[in-house]
Amino acid sequence: MLKKIYLGLMLFFMYAPIIVLMIFSFNASKSRARWGGFTLDWYAELFQDPGIMKALSNTLLIAVFSALAATVIGTLAAIGIELLGSRLKSAVMSVTNLPVMNPDIVTGVSLMILFIFFIRLAGGGGLGFGTLLLSHIIFNVPYVILSVIPKLRRLDGNLYEAAQDLGAPPMKAFLKVVLPEIMPGVVTGMMLAFTLSVDDFVISFFTTGSGVSNLSILIFSMARRGVNPKINALSTLIFLVVLVLLYLINRRDTRNQKKQNAGESILEI
């Protein structure tokens, strides 16, 4: 009983702030101190706010494109790394791990310095959407590599050679034999990259410029000016989207597991 109460209290601690945000997103009074009646005005204002809508589309565009680019680069890189000799491989992996281990703030400022350095060399342009997208690709690539490499290790190298012996050109052998085998790792890496991109604030904060914001940056600048009911409405919507996505992913996983179990039992027969 005591155990249940303890876990209940901990979960209350985790969820109370989110629930408070949700409740106040329906509060007609702008003050947090009192309840001024139920309203959906903040949601209406949220969708009419051009700044928020622009930030939302930036966030999604950057998440989709950076996840796709990082998946392609990361998958090819993982294959390349696996083909290297052991000494070179460990050197390349150590460098790959650097952004994962480094504090985000250091990655952020180091990329900011790099971009400004290049911009000065090129003599034009500035920080903005392009550098923001590039920085997301850069910090996502290691996570894709780390998801794909375990799958590559379990891959039977003979399969690829067998496909080639049977007359498949290298590209076809890769697409038909190697890629399907490592696909689960590639998909995990891509989803991870998408999530990290949507959630990132620190690196984006340093590598964007000229008024280009994603949601995190916008929330930061709004929150610094104090509590704002529109952010409450936005939080509620984001939380609901997250819940639905987690539910869908979970359902997919359990279904896959069931399929696997079914397949195994057939094999056993």
């Binding site: 979960l11 949601l215 929330i219």
Partner: peptide, 22 residues
């Protein structure tokens, strides 16, 4: 365990901002 991890999926800034209201 899932219940403990769900809030982690919400934007870090929003989770911090929530405490302002409280």
């Amino acid at each position: 365990l899932f219940l403990f991890l769900v809030p982690m999926w919400m934007n870090f800034l929003l989770r911090t901002y929530a405490w302002l209201t409280i």
